[in-house]
Simulated scan of single mutants.
Amino acid sequence: MVISEEFINDALDRIKPGEVIITYTNDQSSVDIDDLVSIKININDNEYSVLRLIAVAKAHNDPVLMSKWVITDELANRKYSRVGSLALLSRIIDYVLIESGYDTYVSRSFNSQELRHTLINGPQDLKLRALEALGLDVPFSFKMANRFDEIDDVVKGLSGEFISRYLDLRSYLLNNTSLEYLLNYLDLLFRNA
Rank of each mutant, 00 (worst) to 15 (best):
R129Y: 05
E19C: 10
E99I: 01
R116W: 10
S85C: 05
Y181V: 00
A55H: 08
L51C: 08
H60P: 01
Y48S: 01
T104E: 15
S90P: 00
I43H: 03
I15L: 07
S107G: 04
I33L: 06
L189N: 04
P17M: 06
N46E: 13
I98D: 03
N42K: 10
D62M: 06
G157Q: 07
D152M: 10
L136E: 15
L86Y: 12
I22S: 04
R147D: 11
L119P: 12
L188F: 15
S30L: 13
V106M: 05
H117T: 11
A130M: 13
L183I: 02
V20Q: 05
E19K: 15
S178Y: 02
S4C: 07
V83P: 06
R116N: 11
L186M: 05
F142W: 07
Y95N: 08
N121T: 09
V154T: 04
W69E: 09
S178L: 02
K127G: 03
L158H: 06
L158Q: 08
L75S: 06
Q28T: 10
A76G: 01
R147G: 04
I3K: 12
L65P: 03
M144S: 00
S38A: 09
K79L: 14
M1W: 12
L169F: 01
R91T: 02
R14E: 15
S4P: 05
I98S: 02
E19I: 13
P123R: 10
S29L: 06
L65F: 07
Y166K: 00
G101C: 08
D73C: 02
S141N: 11
D32Q: 09
L88K: 07
S81N: 15
M144D: 03
I41S: 02
D62F: 10
L75Q: 08
V154Q: 06
S49H: 13
N146V: 00
D149H: 03
Y80H: 07
L86A: 06
E74D: 15
